Simulated assay, not measured.
Amino acid sequence: MDISIHYAFLPQTDPEAALGFYRDSLGFEVRNDVGYEGMRWITVGPPNQPETSIVLYPPAAEPGITDDERRTILELIAKGSYGAVTLATDDLDSLFATLVDSGAEVVAEPADQPYGVRDCAFRDPTGNLLRINQR
């Protein structure tokens, strides 16, 4: 059986800020940018991995949720405890410096973890947690 990850979804509450982070700071390419009723779904991904993408979606667009549930989701997003993704790079220190220079919110500086990984962590403009591992 051959299975791969095609899309992962992360909420975004500001499409332009999300583009600035994922495209301009991380260097991801924009694969799709779709608007509907004042909302935008932006698909981005690393240029060297055309089959793997992150869809940055408007959380308010989820069908079937109540206004109270929508408020709760937005509160969790604002606290940074709703969405997360782990990325990997060959040069963690260089990427860390690039993201710091871009103004990204640092959660953890590069460090060797007791579970055997060297990584760091940031929050994207929406508050999603991004851990970045050294390959």
Rank of each mutant, 00 (worst) to 15 (best):
W41N: 13
E69A: 06
P125F: 00
L19E: 06
A78V: 02
D2Y: 08
L74C: 05
D91A: 03
R71E: 07
V55P: 06
P59Q: 15
V106W: 01
A121I: 05
L99D: 10
I77S: 05
I65A: 13
P46V: 13
G103N: 02
R118L: 09
E105D: 04
T89M: 10
A78G: 11
M39T: 15
D124N: 04
A97M: 01
E105A: 00
W41C: 03
R131E: 03
T43A: 04
I54F: 12
P46T: 05
W41Q: 06
C120D: 03
R23N: 05
F21V: 00
I42L: 11
I3V: 14
A78S: 11
F96A: 05
R31Y: 08
P59Y: 14
Y7C: 06
R71Q: 09
V85L: 13
P114N: 04
V44F: 07
N48E: 15
V30L: 04
E69H: 09
G64F: 14
V117I: 15
G80D: 02
P58A: 09
L76N: 11
H6C: 12
E62F: 13
L130N: 06
T86M: 07
L130R: 12
T52G: 06
G80L: 02
N133E: 14
I5D: 10
A60K: 13
D101Y: 03
E16K: 14
E37G: 09
L74R: 10
W41R: 13
S102F: 00
T52P: 05
T72I: 02
R23L: 01
Y36E: 07
S102A: 09
T89F: 11
P15T: 07
P15Q: 12
A111Y: 15
V106G: 04
L19P: 07
R131T: 04
G80M: 00
G64Y: 14
V55D: 15
D2F: 09
A97G: 06
A121K: 03
V30M: 05
R31C: 02
R23V: 04
V34F: 11
I42F: 08
N32S: 07
F28Y: 13
L95P: 04
T52I: 11
P58E: 13
A88S: 15
Y82G: 00
K79D: 08
V117K: 15
Q49L: 14
V107Y: 08
A61H: 08
T52A: 07
F122Y: 01
V106R: 04
E37W: 09
L92V: 15
R31S: 02
G116H: 09
Y36P: 03
I132W: 08
V85I: 10
Y57V: 14
V107A: 01
R123G: 00
P50Q: 10
C120V: 03
D68T: 10
R118G: 05
V106L: 01
Y7V: 12
G45F: 14
D24W: 01
Y115K: 01
A60S: 15
D119F: 08
G20P: 03
T13K: 12
A111M: 12
V55N: 15
Y36L: 04
R40E: 09
L74H: 14
V107W: 04
R131L: 00
S4R: 14
V30D: 01
V100M: 05
G80I: 01
G38P: 02
Y57R: 14
D112A: 07
G83R: 03
V55Q: 15
E16S: 10
R31L: 06
L129S: 00
P125R: 00
F96I: 05
I77W: 07
H6W: 13
L92T: 11
T72E: 12
